[in-house]
Design a protein around this nucleic acid. Structure first.
Lengths: 239, 239
DNA sequence: GGTTGACTGTGCGCTGGCGAACATGATGAG
DNA sequence: CTCATCATGTTCGCCAGCGCACAGTCAACC
């Protein structure tokens, strides 16, 4: 019984109107996503959309020479695969599981069908997409103007918000790939945070000790995005 | 007669189904936008959406300290004000006229009404929004990885694609604001392009002489975005 | 036609992040 | 236990872009 109601762990599913959710429930398939798994390659059509419960998915923009940058991160507040209902079917970005966990998935066809009934699903998806736009925009400006130190804080907080506990399973190498910087740079920035007593890390295990401290060091970008997500996706008047 | 049909200069209006366009035509208001004019301040609700004909509008992400970065550019291929139909009403970014010209505008209320009829307008707007997502993502990665030289080429080509001629009225100072870099950096990069015989500029007038040359120097970001716009917004099967 | 303001050119020193190379310690497979 | 591999630490030279300061130059407006 409890098991059948954990769809609420995903913010979007939790906000759906009851009738719509009831229609979809039989087709929601619970899947376990593993670290590094690709949900979407550049230019490839996704078969499903994914509603993460406790996992995190990074949207990456990859370039010809292999260099990449995370342009957005999706966790229990969102959905992976907006291009399916936006009409383009594909996107030029990749979706990689950054933190393993569970998600519900839904066939793209079914989602589109529900979307075009123009009910709460549509409004929710559109609002979520707008939040995603904000996140991307802020990432762009953050990449331009802010130091690696601040960006690392932002990244840690973004991940923390989407995880149950305070521990991240993530090597500095992977973080560097996400942020699009050198591994050595992450080592140095993370060293500062550790010496300041905000985090401890050890071979792929990062534990946040002092969240407050991270919030003091982070750039405004984190707050701007968070506020926008809250504004767009928590009010009851959406549905 | 000719005058009444120039709405086609905007790609989105030109792709609308005839009946829908007919419904909207009486409410499309032709306006002249001047350089530097703000169509949308951060967090402010727009009264209208704008369909540029021969002007260019930059979407800027502005930070507390005043630093800013252009996150997308909108010309005759698009529309300013996606947040109106996406549901959020406002966005945290600014929309500034980068090149003066003419646009049609439409009251937000009327657009939303048309959007929720779920016809070609909705599909077009959604596809356009996806193209915008791609542009933002690519801007983020370009900010991270590419040199100012390449980014300037990208910016010039983006502008050129949205203008009738080959001349831009734009000071280096303004370009620097758009790209979120120093004015001196633009001076230097533009100097290289001028010495290479690709452009000439003179006190706010930039003329592109050798477009081919720019295309050879630009980073892949320009091409990725252009291809995605073409894919999403030129096929007849949209409507 | 002279002055004022806007636009562009140039030259500092500084710093954050890059690239490469290498060292150390931890983990796990055999 | 041993060894290969992975994760992290450290160093060094390098360079793009920054911040600042100032000089020259054009255009427009009294």
């Amino acid at each position: 019984m409890l098991e059948t109601h954990d769809y609420q762990k995903n913010g979007l599913l939790g906000l759906l109107q009851k009738e719509e959710l009831a229609r979809l429930l039989p087709d929601l398939e619970k899947v376990t996503l593993t670290l590094g798994q690709s949900l979407c390659e550049s230019g490839q059509t996704m078969t499903h959309v994914y509603f993460p419960l406790d996992c995190i998915v990074s949207l990456l923009c990859v370039m010809e020479d292999g260099a990449s940058t995370e342009i957005a991160v999706v966790g229990h507040e969102g959905v992976v695969g907006v291009s399916l209902f936006m009409g383009g079917e594909t996107t030029p970005s990749r979706a990689i599981v950054q933190s393993a966990g569970v998600a519900y998935r839904l066939k793209g066809k079914l989602l589109k069908h529900e979307f075009y009934r123009a009910g709460s699903m549509q409004r929710l998806m559109l609002r979520y997409t707008q939040a995603l736009l904000t996140q991307m925009a802020q990432t762009a400006v953050c990449n331009r103007h802010h130091s690696l130190d601040k960006q690392l804080c932002r990244w840690l907080l973004l991940s923390l918000d989407r995880l149950p506990g305070t521990e991240l399973l993530m090597t500095q190498e992977l973080i560097a790939n996400m942020l699009g910087v050198r591994r050595e740079g992450v080592t140095e920035a993370a060293g500062k945070l550790q010496r300041a007593g905000l985090i401890t890390y050890h071979r792929g295990h990062i534990t946040v000790i002092d969240r407050r401290g991270l919030e003091e060091r982070v750039c405004e970008c984190y707050v701007v995005v968070k506020r926008e997500y809250d504004r767009l996706l928590t009010h009851k008047d959406i549905i």
